[in-house]
Each structure stands twice: as C-alpha cells, then as structure tokens.
C-alpha cells in the first residue's frame, strides 16, 4: 500500500520535473533568438521541412473532409428543407473546430513525429553534444528555428485546410447535390463572423501549434538516446500532443463560443 502511494508520489514528481525541463527548454529556445545572420535561412529551411512537407496531406485531407461534411450535412438538412444552410454548417464547423483540430492532429502525426525523431536521432548520434562542444547552443541552433517554423506553419496550414475543405464542400454540395450556389455563399457570409469564427479559429490554431511543436521538440530533446528511446518518444509525441490538442480544444471552445 505504501509502495503504491510512493509510486504515485514518485510519478507525480517526475511529471513535474518533466514539465520543468520542458519549460526550461522552451525558454532556452525562445530567449536565445537565433543570430540574425543565420536565423532567417535556418527558419526558411525548417518552414520547408515542417510546413511545406505537410502541405499535401493537409490539402488532400481538407478536400475529403469538406466533401464528407457536405454530403452528411446535406442528407440531414434536406429532411428539413434547409439545405441552403449547408454553407454555414460546413463553414462554421470547419473554421471553429475541424480546421484547427484536424490540422493539429495531422500535423502531430506528420511533422511532430518527424521533429521528435530528427532531434532524437541528433541526440543519439551525439550531434547535439557536438554542437555544444563547438560552443553553439543547440537550443538556439536546432530547437528554436524548428519551434518557430511549427508555430508559423500550423495556422497557415489550418487556413489552407479550411479553405480547401470549403471548396470541397462547394464541389459536393453545389456541383453535385444541386444546392444553389448563390445561397450557399450568401447564407455562409451572413452567418460567419470574421472576428468570432475566423480569428478565434486562428487563435486556436496558434495554441495548438505551440502545444504540438513544444511537445514534439521536448520529446526529441529529452528522449533516451537509443533507437528504442527514439521510437518511444515518437509515439509519445503523437499520443500526447493529440490528447493535449483535444483537451485544449474543449477549454478554448468553452471560453470562446459558449458566451
């Protein structure tokens, strides 16, 4: 029994320690801005790795999710003769929820796991130590550009996701199922608010970007530098960041849209 409580206490403490290390890493990466001469080039490279490389999966997923939403929404709405409301249904669910959340989940699977594996591998092959011994701060050189790349990429990806999905919904709803194109757009426009829906969706996206990128980088930076440790860290990145995204999504939705 005492062992049981002891192990709970021990686990709690190590969770706190882990959170502390993660915070220290983040602060280390944010406070030490990469030097101005090299920074932009490093950031562009990481934007390519993190953002551009996720573009295809985001666009394809967005297209299909928009099409499915239109199809499902239509079959329900047409029962009430309200198929003209397909536009706002699709746009609101995408801008408020699906855009930021699905992008974050896909991003965690595509870019987050890659970030963890890459940094874990750099740690295992002593590249991080080697940087330190060359008097180059790995937080500044390796972690910082990746963090900013993730933080910038994800909201952009979420916007692209939503836009493509709405086009997909238009494709199915208007071109295929015969909803009137004019009412599709105009009712959407009258129902969707720029501040409340688009900006709040983007705020969500920035929060998710912070969470997913932070978790991915920390898991890589803190992993046990063996192949087993890296594979464990990669899995943890996807699991932890997905759960964190869904949890925070609930909190943010409660704050933003319940009023």
């Amino acid at each position: 029994m005492i062992d049981f409580f002891q192990s709970i206490g021990h686990k709690t403490l190590s969770r706190f320690a882990s959170l502390g290390r993660a915070t220290r890493m983040l602060i280390g990466a944010l406070v030490n801005v990469p030097n101005l001469r090299k920074g932009p080039a490093l950031l562009v490279r990481q934007l390519y790795m993190v953002g551009h490389q996720s573009l295809l999966i985001i666009m394809v997923s967005g297209l299909f999710i928009g099409m499915v939403l239109a199809l499902q929404g239509y079959t329900v709405l047409v029962g009430y003769g309200a198929e003209d409301s397909l536009g706002p249904l699709v746009a609101l669910s995408l801008l408020r929820e699906l855009g930021p959340v699905v992008t974050a989940l896909l991003f965690a699977g595509r870019a987050g796991s890659a970030l963890t594996a890459e940094i874990g591998l750099m740690k295992a092959t002593e590249q991080l130590s080697s940087l330190e011994m060359m008097a180059i701060d790995p937080l500044r050189r390796v972690v910082s550009p990746r963090f900013w790349a993730g933080f910038i990429s994800m909201p952009l990806l979420a916007l692209i996701f939503s836009a493509v999905a709405i086009l997909g919904a238009h494709l199915v709803g208007v071109d295929w199922l015969g909803v009137d194109s004019g009412s599709f757009w105009s009712i959407m426009q009258s129902q969707v608010s720029f501040e409340k829906d688009i900006l709040n969706g983007m705020i969500k996206s920035f929060v998710f970007a912070l969470i997913v990128t932070w978790i991915a980088l920390y898991k890589g930076y803190d992993c046990i530098p063996t192949s087993e440790g890296i594979s464990k860290a990669t899995t943890e990145t996807v699991v932890h960041s997905s759960l964190a995204v869904l949890g925070f999504d609930f909190l943010l939705t409660a704050v933003m849209f319940s009023g």
């Binding site: 591998l121 092959t125 590249q127 080697s130 011994m133 060359m134 008097a135």
Partner: peptide, 19 residues
C-alpha cells in the same frame, strides 16, 4: 564557457557529423 569551448574540440565516438 562558450569562449573556452571554441579553444577545445571533441571527437565523438560516433563522429557526430551533421547528417
């Protein structure tokens, strides 16, 4: 410390080349 490190270098067991 960073200044001192520029005066020393270390050859790691794995080489630690940037992949």
């Amino acid at each position: 410390l960073y200044d001192a490190r520029t005066k020393m270098s270390m050859l790691f067991q794995s080489g630690a080349l940037f992949t």
